[in-house]
Lab assay of single mutants.
Amino acid sequence: QVALSRTQVCGILREELFQGDAFHQSDTHIFIIMGASGDLAKKKIYPTIWWLFRDGLLPENTFIVGYARSRLTVADIRKQSEPFFKATPEEKLKLEDFFARNSYVAGQYDDAASYQRLNSHMNALHLGSQANRLFYLALPPTVYEAVTKNIHESCMSQIGWNRIIVEKPFGRDLQSSDRLSNHISSLFREDQIYRIDHYLGKEMVQNLMVLRFANRIFGPIWNRDNIACVILTFKEPFGTEGRGGYFDEFGIIRDVMQNHLLQMLCLVAMEKPASTNSDDVRDEKVKVLKCISEVQANNVVLGQYVGNPDGEGEATKGYLDDPTVPRGSTTATFAAVVLYVENERWDGVPFILRCGKALNERKAEVRLQFHDVAGDIFHQQCKRNELVIRVQPNEAVYTKMMTKKPGMFFNPEESELDLTYGNRYKNVKLPDAYERLILDVFCGSQMHFVRSDELREAWRIFTPLLHQIELEKPKPIPYIYGSRGPTEADELMKRVGFQYEGTYKWVNPHKL
C-alpha cells in the first residue's frame, strides 16, 4: 500500500502544474464570482478556492472578487462561507491571508454602469489591468444573457486571457439551449467557454479513460460480442427537503440524466481518441451522441416518491408533501431510460440510465454486464461477469466473477477481482471535483468540460421526450421513500436483457 498525506498529494500536483506551459504561476489572475451571495458560491466555490489557495495550487498573485446585487462586505462573505471551509486552528494565518486577497463589488446584473465599476475595481488591483480574468457564473440561467453581454462589453482583460465558467442547466430543451449557446458564442470563442459538469471532475469518471485505453485486457472485450448491457446509475437517499420548488422546474431527467449520466455513457462508449488533447476527446464523445436516436417512450419509466409510513423524519414525507412543490405536480423524481448506440461496436446493446431521489442508498456507478459463458459445464450455477466502476461513495473498480467454492467439488461461487483505489492508495485525500475543474480552467484544459456541439446532441436525444411529458403530463409511478424505485423499472431492465441475480454482496474494501 502507498500512504500519501494531503501535503504529498498537493506537492505532486504542484510539480505537475508548474512543469506545464499552460499554468502561468507568476502571472496575476483575477477570479470573479458572479452571484457571490448565492448558495453555490457559499457552499462550493469559495470553499474550493480556499482549498486550492491553502494547498498552494493557485497562481501566487490571485485575487478573488465577488459580485452580486446584495450590498455585502468581505466580512459578510466570510461569515456565510467559512463554515464550509473546514479550516483547522493551525490554518488561521493562512485564512487571514486568503481573505486579504478577497474583495466585493455590489451591482445589478443588467446595468452597464455596475460592470464599469467592477472593471475599475479590477484595474485598481495590483497589475489588475493586465491580469488573466476568470469569470464564474454562479447564477440562474435567466440572467446569463445580460451578464455575459455586460462582461464582454465592460470587463474583459485587454492583455491577459479571459475565460468564463457556465453552470448547468444549459437551457431547458434543445431550442433554449441553442439560443443560449448562440448568444454566448457570439461574445466569446469556444476556447474561452467552460460549461461545467462537476461529474466530469470526479476521480473515477476520469479513471474510465485510463482503464479503457491503457489496459490491453479490456480492449478486445469492450464491444457487443461480449457486453450484454451497460447500466449507469445515480441514486440519492434523500428527497427534495424543502427545495422542491427549484427541482420541480427541471425534474430528474434535466437535473441528472441528460448531463451526468449521458457524459458517463460517452466515456464508456467512445472510441479511442487520437490523443488526450481536449478536442480529440470531445470529438469522440460527440460521435457517440450522434449514434444515439431520440428516446422512445416505451423505453422510459418515470416515478415519484411517496412517504414511507414506517419511516422516520423526512422519510415519512412524499414529494408532494414538500411545501415548495406545486400542488398535484407530476414532475418525476425517478427515471429509467434505455438508449442504444447504433454503431458497429455497440449495435443492440442497451445502455440503461437510472437516477432518482429518496432511494435506498447513495450511489453513482457504471456497471457493464457481460454475456453468459458459452457451453456451460457447471449446471447453470454460473452468474454473469460484471465490471463495476463505483464513482461514489467509496470509489472502487471491481470485476464480479466466478471462482471455485472451497471444498471437494467443482462448485462455482461469485467473488470479485478488486482493482480499488483504496487498497493501493491508503487514506489518500484526493482533490474534489470542483478543485480539479477550476484548476483545469486556470490551465486552459477543456477536456472535462462540455463543448457546444456535445451539448446540442445531448438535448436532441431528450427534448422530444421532455416535450411529450410536458404536454401529456403522465402521472409518475409512486414508489416508497427509501425503496429501490418503481418495480416497473426493474421490469424494463429485465425486458431489454439485464439479469439481476441478487445473490452477490459487494464487500467494501475500504472497511476491511
Rank of each mutant, 00 (worst) to 15 (best):
F378S: 02
K317A: 11
Y479D: 02
G485V: 00
H379M: 09
K383G: 15
N308W: 09
E435C: 13
Q381L: 09
W459L: 13
G313A: 10
L262N: 01
H448E: 12
E344W: 06
V306E: 06
V349R: 00
L262I: 02
R354I: 12
E386V: 03
G311V: 14
P326W: 09
R456E: 12
K505D: 14
G313P: 09
L492S: 01
N423W: 08
N508W: 03
E342I: 05
A336R: 02
L387T: 03
L492Q: 07
S293I: 03
L419S: 07
A274Y: 08
H467S: 10
V397C: 15
E386T: 07
T403S: 11
R362S: 14
G307R: 04
F370Q: 04
K287C: 06
A433R: 14
I389L: 14
Q392S: 11
C382F: 05
D347S: 15
K285A: 13
K400D: 05
H510I: 11
V300F: 10
T403P: 04
A396Q: 10
G497I: 13
E312L: 10
D453C: 05
S275H: 03
T487E: 13
I389P: 00
V288P: 00
A396D: 13
E386G: 05
R424E: 13
H260A: 15
K426G: 14
E470R: 13
I469V: 14
F410W: 11
E342K: 05
N343M: 03
S415C: 05
N299Q: 09
D432L: 11
R384P: 15
H510N: 11
T463V: 06
D440P: 02
P476H: 02
D279I: 10
M270R: 01
D440G: 04
N508E: 14
I292D: 01
K287H: 11
D440L: 02
C291V: 08
K429W: 09
L430C: 12
R345D: 06
A358V: 00
L492W: 05
V391F: 14
A274Q: 04
Y398K: 15
L419C: 12
F351L: 02
L267I: 13
G497Y: 12
C291D: 12
E344R: 11
P309V: 12
T503Y: 11
S275E: 03
W459T: 14
F498C: 15
D453R: 08
F409A: 13
T324P: 07
G311E: 10
G497A: 11
N385G: 05
A489Q: 09
R327H: 10
D322A: 08
V507D: 12
A458I: 12
K383W: 13
S275C: 09
M493R: 12
E414H: 14
E361A: 12
C382N: 11
V373D: 15
D376W: 10
G348W: 00
K473Q: 11
P509E: 15
E342A: 07
K426L: 14
P309K: 07
E501W: 04
N259F: 15
W346H: 01
E454V: 06
V391S: 14
A358Y: 00
Y421N: 14
L465S: 04
K285E: 06
C355D: 02
I389V: 08
L417S: 13
C291S: 10
D279S: 06
L417W: 14
S445P: 05
K475C: 12
R456C: 10
F442M: 13
S415Q: 15
G303I: 01
K357Y: 12
A433V: 06
N360K: 09
F378P: 02
F449M: 05
D321V: 10
R451I: 00
N259Y: 12
E472I: 05
L471K: 10
L455I: 04
V450N: 06
G318M: 03
F498K: 14
T324A: 14
N343D: 04
Q468L: 13
F378E: 02
R424I: 08
D283V: 10
T403A: 10
E314C: 10
L302M: 11
T463D: 13
L353W: 01
P476M: 08
G422D: 07
Q369S: 06
M402S: 06
P393A: 06
Y479R: 02
N277E: 11
Y319D: 00
L387E: 01
K272M: 12
H371G: 09
L419T: 08
Q392F: 09
S329K: 02
G444R: 06
A336G: 06
G482C: 04
V325N: 05
A396G: 11
C443L: 06
P509I: 13
T403H: 10
E416K: 12
T331A: 11
L261D: 01
C291I: 04
N411W: 10
D321C: 08
R390M: 13
E344Y: 11
A315E: 08
Y481C: 08
L265S: 02
L430G: 15
H467Q: 12
A336W: 02
E342W: 06
I477F: 14
V286E: 08
Y319S: 00
N427E: 13
E416G: 12
P412C: 15
K494S: 11
E344H: 11
E501Q: 10
P323M: 09
G375M: 15
R495T: 08
K363Q: 15
R354H: 12
D322I: 09
V301Q: 03
K494W: 11
K405R: 13
N343Q: 04
L417N: 15
V349E: 03
K429T: 14
K426M: 12
N343V: 02
Y425Q: 15
Q369L: 15
R451S: 15
G407R: 04
P323S: 09
M401F: 11
L387P: 01
Q304H: 03
F409D: 12
C382H: 09
P478I: 07
Y425W: 14
N427V: 12
M270W: 00
V450W: 15
N277K: 05
C291G: 10
P464I: 03
E294R: 06
L471W: 07
T463C: 09
D322H: 13
L492C: 03
E413R: 13
V441W: 01
R484C: 14
K475W: 10
F442E: 01
R362V: 10
K317I: 08
A364T: 14
M408I: 12
N277H: 11
D310T: 13
P486N: 00
D321K: 06
E457F: 03
M493C: 13
P412K: 05
I477R: 12
R484E: 14
R460H: 11
Q446I: 07
E294C: 08
K363I: 03
L419W: 09
N308C: 09
T324I: 12
V286Q: 09
D418I: 05
A458K: 10
Y481P: 04
V428W: 09
V337C: 11
E470L: 06
R354P: 03
K426P: 04
P509R: 05
F370E: 00
K285W: 08
E314Y: 12
K426E: 09
A269E: 02
I438P: 00
V341C: 06
Q258Y: 13
V428F: 13
A336I: 03
H510R: 11
E472N: 12
I389E: 00
S275R: 03
F334A: 07
L419H: 11
A489Y: 08
Q369C: 14
M401G: 03
N259E: 11
Y319C: 00
V349H: 01
W346Y: 01
R424K: 15
V507S: 09
G311M: 08
V349N: 01
